[in-house]
């Protein structure tokens, strides 16, 4: 027997769509100065956030985002059945330290920059499947921790190409529940790892665009919907060049999304901030979803969103060994009812 809640190849739908009852976001200085600055719950101007190391600063950001989301939902740690979170650091230390502080059952995720959407998709499945009533989801990244793990020390003089992206400093968290007020998650499309042979870690948009396009077209096919069903189709962090590539790829598959297509990595910074192609990192889609997008849904500006978190599965080890950068994209449908 086919799975009863599966639509087509990769998409699941929820019989009683889980509700995003609260969301919170904390960002760094550059994100706070960006066009979405006023939507975030808190802007932290010190890269260390008064901690000893950048890693600790990122942990503090994620913990505070989680606590803020709980506070907005009028819940306490004990009300949470499962926490799903991930980040970019080795062994996802930010998430596990946060889970230690919250002392809730924890499943760690790694989907690179697609982690926020991955956690929302899985959280919704756990709730609709009847395994949890309330799930805490979240993701974070920090420019300084990511840069020193994946690329170069911060103070090393270096020039970045125009295709390079800027890792967002920030953490986003949301509470999903069986019942409550807020936008609901109606579908999720789990992406495949797609590799079109791009090996340039300074052009991650190009590495992720095929995965994003694959997930978006697969979602539209699985649900037999046309792009105009959605008010906005938004990807996580393709950046300016990756977004253009994804648009072309989706067009080649016979769907025209150009009018309603956007990218969190482009929205989060303005042109004067010299970030080149745009934002990236787990925190990028996490903070944009947990502030601006959910806000716009609640305000009635958008009714239906297709949000595709995009991840570049990049490892310094495999990159140095000459392997390509693999991409992945997970989509969730958010609706205001």
């Amino acid at each position: 027997m086919a799975a009863p809640r599966k639509n087509g190849k990769q998409t699941v739908f929820f019989q009683s769509p889980p509700v995003i009852i609260a969301a919170a976001s904390i960002v760094g200085a550059m994100e706070g100065d960006g066009p979405l600055g006023s939507y975030f719950d808190r802007v932290v101007y010190d890269t260390y956030y008064s901690e000893k190391t950048w890693e600790k600063a990122e942990q503090r950001m994620m913990l505070e985002a989680m606590r803020k989301a709980l506070e907005k939902a009028n819940l306490q740690e004990k009300d949470i059945d499962i926490m799903l979170a991930g980040d970019l650091l080795n062994q996802i230390i930010t998430s596990s330290f946060t889970a230690r502080a919250l002392a809730v059952p924890f499943l760690g995720l790694y989907g690179a920059c697609s982690t926020m959407c991955e956690s929302m998709a899985l959280g919704a499945m756990l709730i609709d499947g009847g395994f949890a009533d309330r799930v805490l989801v979240g993701a974070s990244s920090h420019y300084c921790t990511a840069e020193r793990q994946y690329r170069f020390p911060i103070e090393l003089g270096n020039q970045r190409p125009m295709t390079a992206q800027w890792t967002v400093t920030g953490a986003g968290a949301a509470v999903l529940a069986r019942e409550g007020n807020g936008p609901v998650i109606t579908h999720a499309t789990i992406g495949k790892v797609v590799d079109f042979g791009q090996g340039d870690s300074q052009n991650m948009g190009a590495a992720m665009a095929p995965a994003a396009a694959d997930t978006i077209t697969c979602h539209l096919k699985d649900t037999a919907r046309l792009p105009d069903y959605y008010d906005l189709i938004i990807t996580g962090d393709l950046g300016a060049f990756g977004k253009r590539l994804a648009e072309q790829l989706v067009t080649q598959s016979g769907y025209d999304i150009t009018e309603r297509f956007s990218d969190c990595g482009i929205l989060i910074y303005n042109a004067a901030q010299d970030v080149h192609a745009g934002g990236s990192g787990c925190g990028c889609s996490a903070v944009v979803i947990c502030s601006y997008l959910i806000n716009q849904l609640k305000a009635g500006k958008y009714k239906r969103l297709l949000v595709t978190g995009t991840g570049a599965l990049l490892s310094p080890c495999s990159a140095q060994q000459g392997e390509t950068v693999r991409g992945i994209g997970h989509a969730v449908v958010m609706e205001m009812r």
Partner: peptide, 11 residues
């Protein structure tokens, strides 16, 4: 060297 290798040449 940096520009012509499209930034594959690091410092």
């Amino acid at each position: 060297l940096i520009d012509l290798t499209s930034y594959k040449f690091t410092p």
